[in-house]
Amino acid sequence: MIWRTFLVVLAASVLAQLFVAAHPSFALEALFAWNALYGFLACAALILAARALALLLKRPDDYYDDD
């Protein structure tokens, strides 16, 4: 139910683009649903980057406890 509502809101935000006067800052932004796609991909990339960093730098959370 929550998922379905969320998907409707997502779709609405994309379709709303058709009803407002466009003044994109750069040519890319003029593409249809650019911001939706970019937001999703940027977050996916950030999560992947965080996971990659975690492989190197994660430690148990009592790591510093003896200092």
């Binding site: 997502l10 935000s13 994309v14 649903a33 796609l37 937001g39 999703f40 977050c43």
Partner: peptide, 9 residues
């Protein structure tokens, strides 16, 4: 759009 699709992600 930017924020809601971040939420989806």
């Amino acid at each position: 759009q930017l924020l809601l699709f971040s939420g989806l992600a």
